[in-house]
């Protein structure tokens, strides 16, 4: 999987093997700071978006299918601190035209989420 330009701008890296649902990591840096000492809500939204997309691409396993975001709802649960953030997505339903995907972000422990997103993506399949 190749990360798009904005993911590279954020500093996102892929922190898992090819065979697994991709786990992304985001090192803390001045480029992703919001209020002093904390991650920017928009940077977290970007990380969650790419985690959701990566999970969906992983499940689809077909690069000819286009993916277009339609809605995204993000809950912020804890401030993102000066440390690495991890994120992974989970496809809750893969339909013909729509995919429902969740994504979660955490720092210290996976059960202590700093943010979560629920997104709907439109799937644009090539004409048969």
């Amino acid at each position: 999987m190749i990360l798009p330009p904005y993911a590279r701008t954020l500093g996102i890296e892929i922190a898992s093997g090819e065979a697994d649902t991709p786990r992304l990591s985001l090192p803390f840096s001045l480029d992703v700071v919001g209020r002093p000492g904390f991650l920017h809500g928009g940077a977290i939204a970007g990380l969650l978006e790419f985690a959701a997309l990566a999970a969906l691409r992983h499940v689809l396993a077909d690069d000819s299918v286009g993916i277009e975001p339609v809605t995204s709802t993000i809950d912020y649960m804890r401030g993102g601190r000066d440390k690495t953030t991890y994120a992974a997505g989970r496809v809750t339903r893969l339909g013909t035209r729509v995919a429902n995907v969740e994504a979660f972000a955490w720092q210290d422990a996976r059960d202590q989420l700093i943010a979560a997103a629920r997104s709907n993506f439109l799937l644009v399949r090539p004409l048969a």
């Binding site: 798009p4 330009p5 904005y6 954020l10 939204a45 970007g46 790419f50 975001p69 995204s72 993000i74």
Partner: peptide
């Protein structure tokens, strides 16, 4: 543009 910068 990606969705992320628009959210930010």
């Amino acid at each position: 543009m990606a969705a992320g910068p628009v959210v930010s």
